[in-house]
Computed example of a mutant assay.
Amino acid sequence: MTDNDTDSSGRQIDAVENAFNIIESIQELEQCGVTELADQLDIPKSTAHIHLQTLRNLGYVVKEDGKYQLGLRFLELGGRVRHNRSIFQAARSEVDELARSTGEVGTIGYEENGQRVLVYRTEPFEGVSDNAPTGEFTRMHWTAVGKALLSQRTDDEIRDIVDRFGLPRATENTITELDELLNEIDEIRTQGYSIENEERVQGVKSIAIPIRDDANQAGNSAISISGPKHRFDDERIESELLSALRNAANVIELQYKHY
């Protein structure tokens, strides 16, 4: 083991970290040339070129019209990871039906490393949401799914997550104070659902419910429906949307036992 290899003391392999920094930079830039990537990371152009060429030879980066971009190989890896998640297998068809019956966007979310991951989304013809891509990682406190996931954590665990990622603002409605967040999470635990009221995107409202299983084999997961704020008034939430979500969650929890 070299000095840069990860061991029990927490040391890391610098070359691996550098490679993933480059991958994330390409994603951020969407497509780039060698010079652009080198400037982005403040590294020599020769180093950027070697990394890009290596990733291209491995099939993880493609070059089109002189620009580099991430290849679809990542989609294959992500698809396999998602397919192997039992919660995805158990919940997908129910979330599809939930979206069809309500006419709103349905999603499955998962917590990983203190962030909300959008595992699946289905969108009816008239559905409206923030157009977040499947696989997106984002702050927990921004979304109904994220807050439903936080409600399954202890207050101390929530504090640890906030210490790591902070409480940045996405809109004027975003919670940015820890005490306010903890108070809302306590309400979510009591009522069993969370609401996102234009806290990430103006005009979009969402409701989410955590998925529970006795052995906690489903991980920390939740389902939600989202749509334009004017279609998510209190009367519709109480009379239609919450019951639809609860029914879907109940079916998913029962189905999960068979996966």
Rank of each mutant, 00 (worst) to 15 (best):
T47R: 07
V34G: 06
E64C: 08
E94K: 10
R231S: 13
K63S: 15
D156P: 00
E253S: 14
D130P: 02
Q115P: 03
S224R: 06
R73H: 01
I23T: 10
L98P: 03
C32P: 05
R82G: 02
E30A: 09
G79A: 07
F74M: 01
I195L: 15
S9N: 10
Q69Y: 05
K63L: 14
R116Q: 13
R11K: 12
T2P: 01
G103H: 03
I195F: 13
E94R: 06
D163C: 07
H258L: 14
D3V: 07
L58A: 14
A15G: 07
L77G: 03
S101R: 03
I223N: 02
R164G: 04
F20L: 14
D186S: 13
T35S: 09
E198G: 04
E111M: 15
K45Q: 14
I50A: 12
D96F: 10
S93G: 06
N250E: 13
S224F: 02
N131D: 14
T190K: 14
G127Q: 00
H230F: 15
L75C: 02
E157M: 04
F165Q: 05
E123W: 01
E76P: 00
G106Q: 08
G59L: 12
N247S: 10
S243T: 11
D233T: 12
K45L: 05
P228N: 09
R139I: 06
H230E: 14
S25D: 10
I43Q: 08
L29A: 05
L149E: 02
R92G: 07
V128D: 00
V162G: 11
V16E: 07
L178G: 11
A218I: 11
S8W: 08
H51V: 06
Q69D: 01
I43V: 15
G203K: 08
T174D: 06
S101E: 05
T122W: 03
A170W: 11
I209F: 10
Q31G: 00
D160I: 06
L149N: 02
V16F: 08
R246F: 05
G203N: 11
F232Q: 04
F137I: 01
I237T: 11
G114V: 12
L52Y: 04
K257R: 15
E240G: 00
H51S: 11
N131L: 11
E199Y: 02
A218D: 01
A91E: 06
G66D: 13
S129Q: 03
L242M: 05
C32K: 05
V61Y: 06
Y259H: 15
E172K: 14
L241H: 02
G71Q: 00
R73I: 00
V105T: 13
D42H: 11
Y120F: 15
L182A: 03
Q31C: 05
D5W: 03
H51P: 01
L37K: 02
T47F: 08
D42W: 04
L72V: 00
V95D: 07
E198K: 03
F88G: 03
D65P: 08
L77A: 11
S25I: 12
S224C: 09
R212W: 12
I188N: 03
F74A: 00
G106D: 08
G219E: 07
A170N: 10
